[in-house]
Design a protein around this nucleic acid. Structure first.
Lengths: 249, 249
DNA sequence: TATTATTGTCCCACAATGAGACAATATTGA
DNA sequence: TCAATATTGTCTCATTGTGGGACAATAATA
């Protein structure tokens, strides 16, 4: 829930107020070396990790706030961003780890400190270009770290469940998103890529192997790929074609 | 937005507080006479209609609040309920119609009255048994009225867009929901029904005609229907079988 | 120059789907 | 009483999509 954010007061020093009780959490996916990764925040002096999150300014659209926070955390703009669920269980909110973090930061918050009150959190997931991201931690956390999906650390609150839900949504929407003529996968891959790389991406997101011929047949049939010249530099085998997503349709 | 709810104060007379700035809106679907209908609230002395909505108590899970409000508005429990999107645009919130409604109720709210402030609203849609619902208006509205989808009146704020989004989600999820062994369609149909009725329901939700033989083949193949004896009472034609959803799986 | 790993393509069996044909049969009305 | 009518249950056929693998082509390596 991102209750850990850049300003320690609900009304920051420049007088910009945030909506009370409402937060956003981000599941930021990147793809590197055949692995799907997620950006997490770590807190020094604690073993706690959390999803990046943020708050909504009083005169800011919810989705604009999401883009703003994502830009602040990754340095990236024009991101593929999807709102997937809003988490509002009471049980999800546990004061203890938050207090631990704040105390590790030298704070001694009262029981009714706004950061310790209940939050409802809107979940977004984003697909970003791993190679272009320049992750920046927020003021409460110390580092941004990419974690592999299969190797996640202990997470704060219900962040594990949020990631699971994001992944479920991403998987369920994969095929439908492909049908559309929007190359959602573009940020996860280099400018041009081989069919194998694209298939690996699919397999990693879906968590299952796909058959080579079937995958090629299907994805080429969609007409979203443009075939380039071959690449003569790979391994000890026939050179694969390079592809890129057809632009601007 | 549902900023129009049972208590005029954010802290009601019994001292139960609500989360500030957060609301829920409901797109309540019913099915009657081959038509998909939506439950709307009307305000006397105004031409305004709105979706039913509600607020979340300070110590209440978000999804519990949704079930509670739905029960208050329809008298029904154990409802099929799906959270589909959270609406947080500034533009969606317009004070003018709300003030009109409150004034029609004899109120004269100050500019910073809590009901006139910005709300973020979590959208839910529900599928309910039209014949068993006993709609009850809230304190700000005067009547509950079922409207046909194709014949919606002018709606407050962004409620038209909320309905559209709910419908899009419902359509997109139809087939996936079928795959699961949960008979989501049950509340929309009588206890037992003919294949034609089920097909009509599908066609109405999807907004398109389906082929008879294909529909039968597909839906029977799912194994979610139990065939009963024939019904001898219909029109001037061969009697159709009756079906019901197989229970408890 | 032979080996090796991987690629591009093709093939076949089978399942799913689109579109329709046709006999069966309650009710209606002559 | 019985033909007409509207609808139903089922079947067929062509077309398309999918699972699973075969096979030759070929860039690097040994």
């Amino acid at each position: 829930m991102s209750e850990h954010k850049e300003n320690q007061l609900h009304q920051n020093s420049r007088g910009i107020g945030y909506l009370p009780g409402l937060a956003m959490d981000f599941v930021i996916f990147g793809f590197d070396q055949d692995q799907l990764k997620i950006l997490l925040l770590e807190y020094r002096n604690t073993t706690l990790c959390a999803l990046p999150g943020g708050f909504i300014r009083e005169s800011e659209n919810l989705n604009d706030a999401a883009r703003r926070v994502l830009h602040e955390r990754t340095g990236l703009a024009d991101i593929y961003l999807d709102q997937f669920y809003t988490f509002g269980d009471l049980a999800r909110y546990d004061k203890v780890p938050l207090r631990t973090i704040m105390q590790a930061k030298g704070m001694n918050p009262a029981d009714d400190h706004w950061l310790l009150r209940r939050f409802v959190s809107v979940g977004y997931y984003a697909l970003i270009d791993f190679s272009k991201a320049a992750p920046v931690p927020d003021t409460l956390s110390d580092t941004c770290v990419w974690y592999t999906l299969e190797n996640l650390p202990q997470l704060m609150l219900d962040h594990q469940a949020i990631i699971q839900k994001a992944l479920d949504t991403l998987r369920a929407d994969l095929d439908r998103k492909l049908g559309g003529n929007d190359s959602w996968a573009a940020p996860l891959l280099p400018e041009s890529f081989t069919m194998r790389e694209l298939q690996k991406l699919y397999e990693t997101i879906l968590g299952q192997k796909l058959r080579r011929s079937g995958f090629q047949r299907k994805v080429l049939g969609l007409g979203i790929l443009e075939r380039l010249e071959k690449q003569y530099s790979g391994g000890a085998h026939k050179a694969p074609y390079l592809y890129q997503f057809v632009k601007g349709n």
